[in-house]
Every structure is written in structure tokens, then in C-alpha cells.
Design a protein around this nucleic acid. Structure first.
Lengths: 229, 229
DNA sequence: GATTTAATGGACGGATTGGTCTAATAAAGG
DNA sequence: CCTTTATTAGACCAATCCGTCCATTAAATC
């Protein structure tokens, strides 16, 4: 029970053949993911063929199906990769204690707008793209996508709670509801910016959202959601 | 210059062969459009094949390419058909003078939510779907889609102006900016509702939007868009 | 009935789809 | 060197893609 040890304790295992390089570090795998993100954020899942990705990444088909068991599996991998990248962007903005909470949200929206501008507003949000294609996607995408959005929203809720604790937004507002509204609208803004190839939709929505929560008369509450008359 | 008259004056022309039936009334054409709307609002443009539509509509391929010169042409036809249907829905709600302007907007959002519910939240907005796929679509789609959204926004702007004239929303608000924000966010809400297969995103966004414009302290203006400091 | 045009019906075609398969190469331990 | 496993390489496959083609049927005028 020493050498043929169970795969559970993976640290001290001198296995036989060529070692699996760092699980995610394979160059081909990374190039495929990069190409996938570029193409899918621009054209969506259904419109992008595997061969197209292979050519873009300069990788043969054998590698693709070695690292991913199907196009769908690859797509799900892209979702987590995109989420990793995005959460980092989000946290960098949201956890910057040097700024006031609401300013951090502004930092994020500005950064995201710059990001879209860098690609000529031709690339949207992978989550939004795939969400709209759900009808044509394998079912596990749904949970993956909603889960990702939940994560973004949770972070935003925390930020807004902090803003509330610091009195930057009224105590009558519901941070969770606001965070949900923010991401609903922001995805819409990204879609629109991509359609019109310009940043105005992003700015418009951000401006309205900030106007909604800043300096509001405390008599207007968001929490009360229309009790029946 | 009587019988072979130019095609410009089309009323009194006893042409030779079988007359082109009502230009849009062909049964096959209509069945194709109906099937197209169902399938494309659910799965998007790229994910739906022509053959799939033919089977759904019970129409042979010859008919399809007789009525439409390509799949793209068919797609553009769908956009206008969808717009026609949608504008009617919109006007029915927005022009109902028996109600206060803001209530009419509420009537629309409720009706739209019901509409999505009828199809199990599996169908989204054709314009939103195609917008997200723009990267994979022929270029003329862009103008068509933005034009459609502009039309919806114009109607909404008029409605909000009326609301403003009647004092239902503050005189400090900018109806045009509000209308734009509404459609940015509403498309996001539809996308989210389709992803999560439930109406809450629609309700959440609508509630927030109404809360934004109703009963607001007149000191907060939407028009002032951050002059530089 | 002959002619002309509209519309249907579906076989067919070349290109592309996602995916499989096998051979070759690489990198490690024995 | 031999074995074992990882990875690359791309030929190949059945299915589907969008679109063309032509023969047939339908409905009108002459």
C-alpha cells in the first residue's frame, strides 16, 4: 500500500509514464481557451466552429479532444475561465478600501467600458452571450451561467452593504435587490453597446443607476415591493 | 403605353401569368415566418438551420428560396415581422388614454411578462437575440436592429413626456434618457428571465425603474450628466 | 387550349459541422 | 532499451449546413 497509492493523496506519487504536466498549464489548452474567449464573446457559441478555433489557436484537432471531451465541455471550461478573469477584475475594483464603496463600483463600470472599447465594442459578455443561446445549449450551461452571475451579484451586494454602512446610500434601500438590478441592466447595456458599437449605453445605464442610489430622499424605499392595495 | 405600363403604377395592371397573390399573404410564407419567430427567439439565428424551419413549417425548400433569397434575407424579414407584432403590443398599451401614462407602461411590462410565461420563459426577444449574435451576422442586421429599438424608444419617450406633462414624473427628468435606460435594462431583464426560466428579473427591473421615476425628490435630476469637475 | 408567371416539391451538391481514430512524438520510470 | 503515459498531428467520417436546380402543379391572360 505504498507505491500504487490511491489517487487521493496526489503529492508523493512517482507514476509510471510521462507525467501529466500542470493540469491547466498546457500551452495548447491555454491557447484554445484564449481563442475561445475571443471568438465566443464576439459571435456566441453556435456560430463558432471547432475548426475555426483550431486555426486561430494554431493547434491540431487531436489536442482539442485530448483536453476537452466535447465542444460543450470546452464551452463550460470557458465559462469558468471567463469567471476567473472577471472576478479578479471585480475584486480589484470592489475591494480597494482606499476608495469609497460607490466609487469602486464606478471604477468597475469605467474599466469594463474601457475593456469593451479596446476591442471596438465587438466583444460582449460571455455569460450574456451564452445566456441568450440557452435554448440551443446543453442543459448544464444554465446552472453554470446563473451560478456565475450569482457570484458577481453577491460581491456587489457586499459592496452596497458597505456603502450603506458608511451612509453613502440610504438605509431604506435593499442592497441585494439593487445588486440584482445592476447586473440585469448591465448585461443589457453590454448587449446594446455591442450592437451599436459604442460606449453610450454603458454610460447611460451606469449614470441612471448611480443617480438612483445616490442622494435619494429617504422617503422612497426600494425594499417595499408593492404590497397589495 | 397602356397595358405594358411601368411597374411603378401597380394598381391597374392586367399582367400575363398567374398573379402574385397578396405579397405577404402566401400561406407558406406565413408559416415560415411563424416558425422562424418561434425558433429564433428561442435559439437564435446561428443555431437554427433552414431545414429545421422547413420541417416545423411543413413547407418544402423550394418555397423557402422562392420567398426569401437567403437565410439572411429571411432573418431580416423576421425582424420586421417581429417589430410589427411588437409595436402593436406597445401601442395598445401606450396609447390607452383611459389610463395614466405610467400605468400604461406598467400594462406593457405586465403583458410582456405574461407573454414570456406563456412559453415557459424559453423564448426571448428576437432583437436581443440577434443583437448578441451580431458578430456572426451580415452587416445590414445592425441597422435593422438599432432602428427597431429606436422605434420602441421613441414611443416610450412620448409616453414619458406625457407623464411629465401630467405631473406624474418630475419635470427634472429627461424622458429620452429614461426611455433609453428602460430599453437597455428591459432587454437585460428578458435575457435574464430566459436564462433563469422565471419572471423575477422582469419584475425586479420594472419595480426598480418605476421606483426611480415615481415620486422622486425634484432636487435629483437625471438630465445633468456629470459636467466635468 | 396555349401561354405566361407563381409557387410547390424535393433531389442534389459542395462545404462545413462536431467528433473519432490511429500513428507519431515526447517525456518520464523501470 | 523497454514500457508506460501524455500529447500532438491530421486523415477521415457521418451528419448537417445553406443553397441550386429542375420538374411539376396552379392560376391567371390571351
Amino acid at each position: 500500500m505504498t507505491t500504487t497509492g490511491s489517487p487521493l493523496t496526489s503529492t508523493d506519487k512517482p507514476r509510471r509514464g510521462r507525467p501529466r504536466g500542470a493540469p491547466e498549464a498546457s500551452e495548447a489548452r491555454q491557447k484554445l481557451i484564449r481563442a475561445g474567449l475571443e471568438h465566443l464573446t464576439e459571435k456566441g457559441y453556435s456560430a463558432v466552429g471547432v475548426d475555426e478555433l483550431l486555426k486561430a489557436a494554431g493547434v491540431p484537432k487531436g489536442s482539442f479532444y485530448h483536453h476537452f471531451k466535447s465542444k460543450a465541455d470546452f464551452g463550460l471550461t470557458l465559462v469558468t475561465a471567463y469567471n476567473d478573469y472577471f472576478v479578479e477584475l471585480l475584486d480589484r475594483a470592489f475591494l480597494d478600501e482606499a476608495r469609497a464603496p460607490l466609487d469602486r463600483l464606478r471604477v468597475f463600470t469605467d474599466a469594463a467600458a474601457e475593456g469593451m472599447a479596446r476591442h471596438g465594442f465587438r466583444r460582449g459578455c460571455l455569460v450574456g452571450n451564452l445566456g441568450q443561446e440557452m435554448g440551443a445549449l446543453p442543459d448544464d450551461f444554465r446552472a453554470a451561467l446563473t451560478g456565475v452571475l450569482e457570484g458577481w451579484q453577491t460581491r456587489t451586494t457586499r459592496l452596497l452593504r458597505e456603502a450603506q454602512a458608511q451612509g453613502q446610500i440610504g438605509p431604506d434601500l435593499d442592497p441585494e435587490a439593487l445588486a440584482e438590478t445592476f447586473w440585469i441592466g448591465w448585461e443589457g447595456a453590454v448587449l446594446r453597446a455591442k450592437l451599436e458599437l459604442r460606449p453610450e449605453p454603458l454610460h447611460r445605464f451606469a449614470a441612471t443607476f448611480f443617480c438612483l442610489i445616490e442622494n435619494r430622499s429617504p422617503t422612497i424605499t426600494q425594499k417595499a415591493e408593492r404590497t397589495q392595495p
